[in-house]
Design a protein around this nucleic acid. Structure first.
Lengths: 228, 228
DNA sequence: CGAGCGCTTGATTTATATCAATGCCAGTGG
DNA sequence: CCACTGGCATTGATATAAATCAAGCGCTCG
């Protein structure tokens, strides 16, 4: 069964306005913008969480590292997504711009101040955290129990609901990023994509596989079967 | 470096009182108790989330299933732990008693009602959800990138901080449960435990390996090295 | 226009899963 | 109270999915 309704897709796409913030009515909140070049770190794990961010354009990865360099990407943040929202005082991931990226940022402290007095903002804070939790819970199932093909299929479906413009998927992240998100190696991801292509579940634009793929209704349904 | 301070350990052990609830001052809140026999389901995935639970005695597993029966346990709930708290209206895991278990339960609705008026309760709700999120984030790293030995070492350390009484670990869950929590098979878990025993990092009580193990200061430090 | 990076594809290795046998303890019923 | 049974755990042998090692291709960009 293919689940792809608008409510599902939008539930993770809060805007700062959805958070209950509004520049004009809340003069405390300063909405600054900043641009990061491709590959540049936005903040590091364990740094004090001074700001909350919203992707205005571009894409961001957040990840944890083990001492020997093994990397686990916990989430990709696409246009409209809010990230860097922590309950504690420290960031729990490192984040980097995947491509040139512009973010809006809000001082964490001023956000907390507003939440203190405004129950709606407080509720939206909780709802955002709960959405992040749900994503992490689903991802645990993927990482713990799914095969490589199922993981890649699930990834494509997730990206499709989050950044598709009319059946065309233009992925901003590299094979290595995808692999580190799915708990695989880049070779395994590449092989899985080739296999999906052979199966006719996926089509690439241009004469080489570079980032852009097509997904029609039937292919999406086939992916949905595969991802379990 | 061995991190094992009281703050860390207690941060995930909220009591309902910590949530800001108090039977005497909040007559709305009804604190009922219920006992489940070993292996019995408490609630199922996608069931309406009517209650929030706290483990009074025993232990609980929450898990998701794939269509073919593969299981991923997302968390174990031990004495004092609160579980079943959802932001949406449905449960996202199935939960079962691992051993005979008594829980206290609170109607979700009454909890929300209280949170509406009491900022402290609302803040604690957010803080609990954020703690669950942090646990899930750490677990994604484990599931995506750690070796079997690292996973088992991390598991033992987690359980040690959560249910140790003076260096003695009495695990309520089976090898299969541990495996499904760590994204491994039960044989691999068993082999990892045997290996740790051979390495002198772990000692079992009794003449057979059954549930109870000893962990002294040095062994904990060795585990901490291993888990990465 | 050349260099290098990212990607694909092939060959081989390896960690973990799977299959299989056996042992041990706990609970049950005779 | 003891013998039986079944579940859980360990351990060994083998299979396999994915990782690793390796080569080559084609964009992209400097």
């Amino acid at each position: 069964m293919l689940v792809r309704n608008a409510a599902d897709a939008s539930s993770r796409h809060h805007s700062l306005r959805e958070l209950g913030l509004n520049t004009s009515s809340n003069p405390i909140i300063s909405l600054n913008e900043f641009t990061y070049k491709k590959g540049i770190e936005i903040y590091g794990e364990k740094e004090p969480a001074e700001y909350v961010y919203q992707v205005k354009s571009g894409a961001v990865r957040s990840y944890k590292l083990l001492s020997d360099g093994r990397r686990q990407i916990g989430a990709f943040h696409l246009v409209g997504d809010i990230f860097g929202l922590e309950n504690g005082s420290e960031h729990r991931f490192t984040t980097e711009a995947i491509v040139d990226t512009t973010v809006r940022l809000v001082k964490r402290q001023s956000l907390e101040l507003v939440a203190e007095g405004d129950a709606m903002v407080a509720r939206n804070l909780l709802s955002m955290t709960a959405n992040n939790l749900q994503h992490a819970e689903d991802h645990m199932l993927l990482l713990g129990r799914k095969t490589s093909l199922e993981r890649v299929a699930a990834f494509l479906l997730e990206m499709d609901t989050r950044l598709t413009a009319a059946g065309i998927l233009a992925l901003p992240m590299s094979r290595r990023d995808i692999a580190d998100y799915l708990g695989l190696t880049l070779e395994t991801v590449s092989r899985a994509l080739s296999r999906l292509q052979d199966l006719g579940i996926l089509g690439f634009i241009g004469n080489t596989q570079r980032q852009i793929m097509l997904l029609d209704r039937h292919q999406l349904a086939a992916l949905d079967d595969l991802q379990n």
